[in-house]
């Protein structure tokens, strides 16, 4: 009774604030926060685009008023940026490949296992790293893989080592794979769930052993999830900052580190913006290539789901 009176009152307020005639705008209103967020991002990008076109005067530490492409020229002319760029793209590609190869069986077993316990354990080990955070995890690897770390002390007991396992390119990639694996699993799992187990049984009964079933049925049907995972993992790896800093030992920078250095270490926001803009363009371009070649996956832009 009281509740219904209250509901009616609330409905009255709603009717005054948002008359029925506005109803067709309700959908648009719900989109507003997302649109606002995107607009802020676009504004930030526009600001950076503008900043990238002004040159810093190191005598006064003021940026010039004139528009110039000098920052881009400077960047293009410096081998460091090309090396760092190449390292980031190659690294992101390797990380994507390895992550997908590891994530797929994980997601598959998590979805298909008949044991509730196995599923729970897999889920918990998947979500736990999310609560820990990237930087802490990276430091964890320092403790485990360092010269006097856990692994080397175990090797020591066996009379081996110590081995240098951190502060190099492979350790950065390793850290990235470990960091991005949960993202990939979470994006692939729904795609595996969508594959009726009967379809795999059908393939077997039609004469395909498990490997061919995997290749001809499971993999093509899971493609949407794999594409989504590849896209997310690739862009996150390409733009990562923390892993190269913490596990790279200072000599394995990615582009984001170059952006940071320009902004904060040499206080050159123009050059930093130019590097950042180039990074955004390359990431967008590569994402577009992935989408064009492989389709949009579960991130779906097309209305027709195949």
């Amino acid at each position: 009774m009281g509740a219904s009176v209250m509901l009616e009152a609330l409905e009255g307020i709603r009717a005054t604030l948002w008359p029925r005639a506005f109803k067709r705008f309700t959908g648009a209103m719900l989109l507003l926060p997302a649109v606002a967020l995107v607009l802020v991002l676009v504004a930030g990008l526009a600001w950076m685009g503008d900043a990238s076109l002004h040159l810093l005067d190191t005598e006064t530490f003021e940026t010039g008023a004139d528009y110039t492409a000098a920052n881009y020229r400077q960047m293009g002319g410096q081998a460091t940026y090309w090396i760092v760029l190449g390292r980031s793209i190659l690294g992101a590609a390797i990380v994507t490949l390895v992550t997908l190869v590891l994530a797929f069986p994980y997601a598959y077993v998590m979805v298909r296992t008949g044991s509730a316990w196995t599923r729970k354990i897999l889920l918990v080990s998947l979500f736990l790293p999310f609560f820990i955070g990237q930087v802490v995890r990276a430091y964890g690897w320092l403790i485990i893989l360092g010269k006097e770390g856990l692994l080397n002390s175990l090797f020591g007991i066996l009379g081996l080592g110590p081995f240098k396992m951190i502060y190099n390119y492979p350790s950065v990639l390793f850290g990235l794979v470990q960091y991005l694996l949960p993202f990939a699993v979470l994006l692939i799992a729904p795609a595996v769930t969508a594959i009726d187990e009967e379809i795999e049984l059908a393939s077997e009964s039609l004469g395909a052993h498990w490997l061919r079933t995997f290749r001809h049925v499971t993999l093509p049907m899971a493609k949407p999830g794999l594409v989504a995972a590849a896209l997310v993992v690739f862009t996150l790896a390409l733009t990562d900052y923390a892993m190269p800093v913490i596990l790279g030992g200072g000599t394995n920078d990615f582009i984001a580190n170059a952006v940071y250095d320009a902004f904060f270490r040499i206080s050159d926001s123009g050059l930093g913006s130019a590097v950042a803009i180039v990074l955004v363009l390359i990431a967008t371009l590569l994402a577009a290539v992935i989408l064009t070649v492989l389709g949009s996956g579960t991130l779906g832009f097309s209305a027709e789901r195949r």
């Binding site: 190191t58 081998a79 090396i83 200072g250 920078d253």
Partner: peptide, 18 residues
């Protein structure tokens, strides 16, 4: 130092990141 920092920094990076 202030005037040359950027150049020194760039050179150092180009050696170390190469």
């Amino acid at each position: 130092q202030v005037e040359n920092e950027k150049e020194w920094f760039g050179k150092f990076k180009s050696i170390m990141q190469g």
